[in-house]
Design a protein around this nucleic acid. Structure first.
Lengths: 251, 251
DNA sequence: TCCGCTGAAAGTGCATGCAATTGGACCGTT
DNA sequence: AACGGTCCAATTGCATGCACTTTCAGCGGA
């Protein structure tokens, strides 16, 4: 549909982009949990490139919010705070409402078929691992975004969707993705009928329930990051730096 | 408000970020027009760093959509198509409505004072160059986003606002920013009053009129990019590549 | 046993070097 | 003139090397 003189944003088969795609996928399949270390040499060796390239890829992913880059320290997969996760979902809701609003009644038959096929795949993957279910569910939303033919919208929806995946590993309890699948079907139906008001409401409700299923507790009690928890208090003690902690979080 | 153990996204005084900030600013002040070339060595020399760093910065900006990176070619400031510009404004409207919705009735006195001070500065800059007016107007929106205390929202609003600036150089005619200033004041007033419905409507209207002032004609008749215009047709002629053009667009 | 110190190992920050690609001036042919 | 080919300067793609910072295991003292 769009021209591809130099294939703008899509599939640039740059070594950097290859690494980015691989890492993104590892993140949404939760093979890489938040906080996982990403040393440049290890990445470089794994992908057969030099540190320079691995570093560049990490920079890109940091820009997307998937990776946290701390000066002179090993990069890690980002660990969004509960509030950040909530914010991400809020933004996602607005963006995806925009997506379906633009799409309502404008989809071709083959596009609708493609969407249905994707949801069929989600259905079939029901018995498999959570990782695959989550990936497929996320890809459904990205597929929708693609159909708007708006590169910017694709980028933002993808980014924020990945970020949301990240929070699943952190704050979610084991969930049934069953309802999500039927909600996807409902959205497709409303899109096909061209009912703009209904489909935006469906999407809002869908993402809202995903968020509520994911962000169960406002308390990130998962043991990691004692230091971060204490950081706000540290300001009250000394102005410039966190005091040394008596032997705590490891790894 | 937030802790700053390693100062997460803000002001990382990385050499890379310094270059990024400088280039972003040059873009929003239209010192760098869309299509302007950005050779790595030139940047490196200008900022006193090596090509490696300049390259890294370009990668970041490409991720933000401000720069276009073509393999083996000199990077250039992005030239969004008219449709992309329209999409950017659509997204921006939704994002900024979210901003003011979160902010309505929640601003402290000092924050309101800060906003008013900023608009005062916009007013004073009225007589100066367009560049400064545009920058200040943009920074008003980013300042609002900052007050949500949501790093993600800040990032997206900033990015999309920069992109919108980019389109001003391309598709806008000389404009009076006078009305924009009074609209900014109206938004502040509605925020202070806590009238959520009104402020979201004000913001929608404000951005919509900015967009309409900016995107006057759906036809990018500015001579550049003959090749891009023909690209869709080229597919019909030869499957793999655009045929050579008989001496046309230069530079 | 617990704490703090210290030095080596691991890792990042960045510049530089080399191969490969591109753009364009030059030049001969039609 | 217009076209097509050739060569060289400009520029990117990427790996490597070196300096500096962080981490942590081992060690000695309380």
């Amino acid at each position: 549909m769009a021209a591809r003189p130099t294939s703008k944003t899509s599939k640039s088969s740059d070594k950097v982009s290859v690494i980015c795609r691989a890492l993104r996928r590892a993140v949404i399949e939760q093979a890489l949990e938040p906080g996982a270390k990403l040393p440049e040499d290890a990445l470089g060796e794994r992908f057969g490139v030099s540190r320079t390239i691995a570093r560049h890829a990490l920079g890109q992913l940091a820009g997307e919010g998937l990776v946290e880059l701390r000066r002179n320290r090993i990069a890690v997969v980002a660990t969004p705070s509960w509030q950040e996760a909530r914010d991400a979902f809020d933004i996602r809701i607005e963006l995806e409402r925009l997506v379906v609003r633009q799409l309502a009644g404008k989809l071709t038959k083959s596009q609708i078929a493609e969407l249905n096929a994707h949801v069929d795949a989600e259905h079939r993957a029901r018995g498999g691992t959570d990782a695959v279910s989550i990936r497929l569910a996320t890809e459904f939303h990205i597929l929708l975004a693609h159909m708007t033919n708006s590169p910017i919208l694709v980028r933002y929806v993808s980014e924020v969707a990945y970020r949301c995946c990240l929070t699943l590993s952190l704050y979610s309890r084991p969930h049934s993705s069953e309802c999500a699948i039927s909600e996807h079907r409902a959205i497709i139906a409303a899109l096909a009928k061209g009912d703009e008001a209904k489909v935006t409401e469906l999407m809002r409700h869908h993402l809202d329930s995903v968020a509520n299923r994911a962000l169960v507790a406002p308390v990130p009690q998962r043991g990691r990051d004692l230091l971060d928890i204490l950081a706000p208090y540290a300001d009250a003690v000394t102005g410039d730096r966190v005091v040394k902690l008596p032997r705590a979080a490891r790894r």
